[in-house]
Simulated assay, not measured.
Amino acid sequence: MNVTASQTPRASIAGHPRRIALVVIGTSLTALLILLPLVAVFYYALREGWTVYVGHLKNQETVHAIWLTLLAALVAVPVNTVFGIMAAWTIAKFDFPGRRLLTSLIELPLSISPIVIGIAYLFVFGMQGLLGEWLSDHELIFFGYEFRFVFSVPAIVIVTTIVTMPFVFREVLPLMQTQGTSEELAAISLGASGWKTFLKVTLPNIKWALIYGISLTFARSLGEFGSVAVVSGAVRGETNTMTLQIHMLFDDASQTGAFAVASILTSIALVTMLVKTWVERREARRLAEGTGLNSE
């Protein structure tokens, strides 16, 4: 999240035909490519009435798909939140060989197709993968549950976590780098423990970027399709997420059902956008107030 402390004045478009044309073109493209498809999702989801819409959402396979998608997100978000903060802290606060390489590796899922991530995962944990033969010979049982790494719920959770790994990290790292270590060192010199320093000094400084990163991670994990399609097996009622359920409903010519599930994902995306806007405004206001105090 990039928010500048100094707000430069915006130029007026009044009396400038080219500027007006740019605004009209940008607004028209936004309406055509973004707003219109969003409206279409809800229109086609509700075109047969509210009762039919709710009936599609109450379908047993759809309920399971929603539950499984939320499960993957509720695991991926806290894992990547902790990982993102720890990785950003390590890279921002300490100097060691390979810092840039480590940053590039963490951000790698952003530049690789999720399908490639899923295939790479299979080549490591699948039956023909590097660890596949060993895993097939050794049963991993946790709390009475046989842990399988492919075509299973754990596989969906793992690849979702991998795909969404960079988001919190990318949001909090620039702030930590900008703030440096002076405040933390001052707190430690005054007798604060490392944990208390983090809670009282570091965390308040990154909280809005952290909230933003968490919201992006949550939305991205809910909408993941490519890697999940590769490793899940797409078994109806067992390893189907919401995105896979939408795909299967379209294949079954159940367009209303597909749009009903899609409306859930769209609603979550809209809520995430509102959270993003709120966070950015709060951060911009905080920076503006800080600039005003410094000028005094």
Score class of each variant (00 low, 15 high):
Y121T: 01
G180H: 15
F83T: 10
T81R: 03
L270H: 14
T239C: 02
V63M: 04
L29N: 12
A31Y: 14
L70H: 03
G191M: 05
I34E: 03
S193A: 04
L71S: 06
H138W: 14
D95M: 01
H56L: 01
E224M: 06
A73G: 09
R282L: 06
R100L: 13
T217H: 14
T181D: 11
Q245D: 01
A11Q: 12
L74I: 15
A65L: 01
G126K: 12
T30A: 00
S6R: 11
G226P: 14
R170Y: 11
I106K: 07
I25V: 14
T202Q: 09
L287P: 09
G223S: 15
T160E: 02
R10Y: 15
P204E: 07
L29R: 09
S28V: 10
N59S: 03
E61A: 08
E133G: 01
R285C: 14
A73I: 04
F94Q: 02
V275D: 05
G223D: 15
M86L: 08
E224D: 11
T239I: 00
F167I: 03
L287Q: 11
F169G: 04
E133N: 10
R47Q: 13
Y121D: 02
I13P: 13
V150F: 15
G226Q: 09
F94E: 04
G98K: 15
R47F: 12
Q128L: 05
L210T: 02
L101Q: 04
S28G: 11
D252S: 09
S232I: 06
L110G: 11
T197C: 07
G84I: 00
A31F: 13
S28D: 06
V271E: 03
V23W: 13
V116M: 03
V3R: 03
P78G: 06
V279F: 14
M273R: 14
L216P: 02
E61N: 05
V279P: 05
W50T: 05
V54S: 00
A40H: 11
I112K: 00
A76M: 00
Q177I: 10
I91W: 11
V63N: 01
L185R: 10
V41K: 02
